[in-house]
């Protein structure tokens, strides 16, 4: 774990500070100030993404540092934007934002690398963007489901119910499908096979199938079996984590997607 003593690092820490302050104000119930401070934090996080984009000359979604940086700006932004993502307490969203930026700020290496030939394709950006958007909705669904699963735990907001989880999944699942399909098309163009049974592909297939399973339980049994449905959405969330982190970081799963395996040399 290292501090980043660059302008990039400074922007990430400033955004994190904004989120932490907003959380603290929320805890103090100073609600009229929370929005302003949170919005400033998000604006700084977006500036960090923009700076990275300018600095490297490519969309910042090539390695784990960039993915976490983007999610650390986009997740709070989409939650802040309201609508469906306003479900539940804002405090939990702030914590997620802090955790995402913490990983970008302290865990992953930010040294810019040139894009390897495999990533210089017009399908790279749409594939990763679709997945990023899917992860934002499905991570939120996973969190709501966790609170639904723990009996007696404070619920994720007052109006918590299975309907909200379903709405989040029906937004995230088509994005995930498109991410999968675009990735498959890109793999065919770059490597010759649209599916190589690579560990990362298999983790992402497992996540896709689990969400499909959830949708079928929902379509077949309506409001019945809420714990099974919550369990499946939570399992999907764990499989997303495995796709994103475990498959990239563990030496157990070496494969075609190792370009994302830039853990840092320090």
């Amino acid at each position: 774990m290292t501090m980043k003593t660059t302008l990039q690092g400074f922007l990430i820490y400033a955004a994190m500070l904004g989120y932490v302050l907003a959380l603290w104000l929320y805890w103090l119930k100073k609600y009229e100030l929370v929005n302003t401070v949170y919005a400033i934090g998000i604006a700084v996080a977006l500036a960090a993404v923009g700076y990275r984009w300018m600095h490297t000359g490519h969309a910042p979604c090539m390695n784990l540092f960039e993915i976490f940086l983007c999610m650390g700006a986009m997740y709070p932004l989409i939650c802040f934007g309201g609508g469906l993502m306003r479900i539940g307490s804002r405090a939990y969203d702030m914590v997620v934002g802090i955790l995402l930026l913490f990983a970008a700020g302290f865990v992953f290496d930010a040294e810019p690398r040139n894009l390897p030939p495999a990533l210089q394709h017009f399908l790279f950006l749409p594939h990763v963007s679709a997945y990023l958007l899917a992860y934002i909705y499905l991570v939120k669904a996973g969190l709501v489901a966790v609170f639904g699963l723990i009996r007696g735990a404070p619920l994720y907001g007052k109006q918590h119910s299975g309907d909200e989880i379903y709405k989040l999944v029906r937004n995230g699942f088509p994005c995930m499908t498109m991410g999968l399909v675009l990735g498959s098309w890109w793999a065919k163009m770059a490597w010759g096979e649209f599916w190589s049974w690579d560990p990362k592909e298999l983790w992402s297939l497992a996540a896709f199938l689990v969400y499909a399973g959830y949708l079928h339980v929902h379509a077949g049994y309506g409001k019945r079996y809420p714990r099974i449905k919550h369990g499946l959405v939570f399992l999907g969330f764990l499989l997303i984590l495995a796709t994103l982190l475990w498959a990239n970081l563990s030496d157990l799963f070496l494969g075609l997607h190792d370009y994302a395996n830039l853990r840092g040399s320090s």
């Binding site: 560990p199 298999l202 497992a206 199938l209 499909a212 399973g213 077949g220």
Partner: peptide, 20 residues
């Protein structure tokens, strides 16, 4: 459908440990 979908999900996780 649910049974088949979850069976394949389980198979995918198992296969992730086997290698491509």
């Amino acid at each position: 459908g649910i049974y088949l979908i979850l069976l394949l999900a389980l198979g995918s996780v198992y296969a992730a440990f086997l290698g491509s």
